[in-house]
Simulated scan of single mutants.
Amino acid sequence: MSSLPAAENVVIKGIREEAAEADGYRVLVDRLWPRGVSRQRAALDGWAKDATPSTGLRRGLHDGTVPWPEFVADYRAELGRTPGAEAVADLRRRAMSGRVTLLVAAHDRVRCHARVLREAVLGVADPDLP
Rank of each mutant, 00 (worst) to 15 (best):
A42Y: 03
V37C: 12
A114C: 11
R94D: 02
V29Y: 02
A43P: 03
V104N: 04
P53C: 03
E86G: 14
R115I: 08
F71D: 04
L44T: 03
A105I: 00
A85E: 10
K13Y: 01
D126S: 02
V27S: 03
D30H: 05
T101M: 13
Y25F: 12
S97Q: 08
D90P: 00
P34N: 11
E17N: 10
R111E: 02
E70P: 15
V88G: 13
R39I: 07
A7G: 03
H62A: 11
Q40C: 13
L32Y: 13
Y75T: 12
L129S: 04
G56T: 08
R16P: 06
R111M: 00
D45A: 07
H107Y: 08
V121P: 00
W33Y: 04
V10W: 01
D23Q: 08
W33S: 05
A85I: 07
V121D: 05
K13W: 00
L129Q: 05
G98S: 08
L122H: 13
M1R: 09
G80R: 04
V10M: 05
L28S: 09
M96Q: 09
A87V: 15
A77V: 04
L102D: 00
A125E: 15
T65H: 07
C112R: 00
V88I: 14
V100I: 11
R92P: 01
V27Y: 00
T101V: 11
L103P: 01
D23M: 07
L4C: 01
G64R: 10
A125V: 15
E21Y: 10
V121L: 00
A105Y: 09
G14A: 05
I12W: 01
L28C: 12
P69V: 13
T55S: 09
W33T: 05
A125K: 14
V72L: 05
V100W: 01
A125H: 14
L129P: 02
P5K: 04
G46M: 05
A114S: 12
A6H: 15
W33K: 00
E119T: 05
E18T: 15
R31L: 11
T55I: 11
R58P: 08
P130T: 11
R76E: 11
T82F: 13
A19R: 12
W47T: 10
V100T: 08
P53K: 03
S54F: 14
T52L: 05
A20S: 14
V104I: 13
D50S: 08
D90F: 12
D74F: 15
V27C: 07
L129G: 01
N9T: 00
A22Q: 14
R99A: 07
D30K: 02
T55N: 11
R35C: 01
V110R: 02
D50V: 06
A6F: 14
E119H: 01
L32G: 11
P34R: 12
P5E: 03
A87R: 02
L28F: 13
D74I: 15
G123S: 09
A22N: 13
M1N: 06
A20F: 13
A105F: 07
H113T: 10
A120P: 04
G98F: 08
R26S: 06
C112S: 09
H107L: 11
V124D: 08
R93S: 14
A73T: 13
D126P: 07
L117C: 03
A42P: 01
R41G: 09
K49S: 14
Y75Q: 12
S54T: 13
E86S: 15
L4A: 06
T82W: 14
Y75G: 08
S38C: 10
D74S: 15
A7F: 10
A77N: 10
D45N: 09
A85D: 07
D23I: 06
